[in-house]
């Protein structure tokens, strides 16, 4: 095919101020990381609480957590994003609404929406991993902890969760990578993260393949770094004398 390759495109002017196309990719990567990391930390916290709730005795708390998981796992991510960006703000008090929609920088309000959306969506998935991790532990562990006088909270904090998290590092790694990939939905509400900047570069320069190739390479390197990081963590917390975590 007669495609006109130009790998120097990234160093050429975008025609806007003094920016070159590479600047767009760098800023896009910055937004992608800012969205994914913050959403991930929140998802991990919320998901852990929910995961613990699902394993507690009694009926009410597990039911609440189960309902949460069903809701947030089964509604498509895009629909949820539009809810958080277009629908929910309309139900805020008048003054907050004006602040959110008009006074706040649009990038900031889009950022808030997408972080809330990804955090709550991913929390449902983290919840299931945490629940599985806890349920995979021998039942004797909680009995042993309770028998020495630990409260339920202490039992989870000192005995069950440290083991459960070791077990679920591999699936959590994949959720961690997913949140980076899912962060590209932000482009649909106008947040100029990596994918949005890639599309913009493709449109403006008409060097479509170069733009998407660079994006592929960036996502690839990003994912490899995250995987290396998680592998290091997994090695560091590995229990001596055990293969592949607590069982």
């Amino acid at each position: 095919m007669n495609y006109n390759w130009d790998w120097n495109i990234f160093f050429k002017s975008t025609g806007i101020g003094s920016e070159i196309y590479l600047d767009w990719f760098i800023s896009g990567l910055g937004w992608t990381i800012a969205v994914a990391l913050v959403a991930w930390i929140a998802a991990l916290a919320i998901g852990s609480v929910l995961g613990v709730m699902r394993t507690l005795p009694g009926k009410v708390l597990p039911a609440i957590a189960t309902a949460y998981v069903e809701l947030f796992r089964n509604v498509p991510l895009l629909v949820q994003l539009f809810m958080w960006y277009f629908v929910v703000p309309d139900y805020l008090p008048e003054a907050t609404q004006i602040w959110f929609k008009q006074e706040l920088n649009p990038a900031t309000s889009a950022y808030i929406s997408v972080v809330v959306c990804l955090a709550l969506f991913t929390a449902a998935r983290v919840c299931e991993q945490v629940r599985t991790g806890i349920q995979a532990l021998p039942r004797g562990q909680s009995a042993a902890a309770l028998a020495v006088g630990f409260s339920i909270g202490q039992t989870y904090r000192y005995v069950l969760l440290p083991q459960a998290f070791r077990v679920i590092i591999p699936p959590l790694t994949s959720e961690f990578l997913n949140i980076f990939k899912n962060s590209s939905v932000a482009s649909l509400i106008g947040l100029m993260e990596l994918l949005a900047q890639t599309k913009q570069t493709a449109e403006f320069s008409a060097n479509i393949f170069e733009a998407f190739t660079l994006a592929t390479v960036i996502y690839f390197v990003l994912n490899m770094s995250l995987m290396t990081l998680m592998n290091l963590i997994e090695k560091k917390v590995r229990i001596p004398g055990m293969m592949g975590g607590a069982k």
């Binding site: 277009f86 309309d90 929609k101 008009q102 920088n105 649009p106 990038a107 309000s109 889009a110 482009s187 649909l188 509400i189 106008g190 100029m192 949005a196 913009q200």
Partner: peptide
């Protein structure tokens, strides 16, 4: 503050919703 919406329909929604 420039918002880049994904298509014309969504651009109009941004206008209509006061953003």
């Amino acid at each position: 503050n420039i918002i880049s919406a994904k298509d014309h329909g969504e651009s109009f929604l941004m206008l209509e919703s006061g953003r």
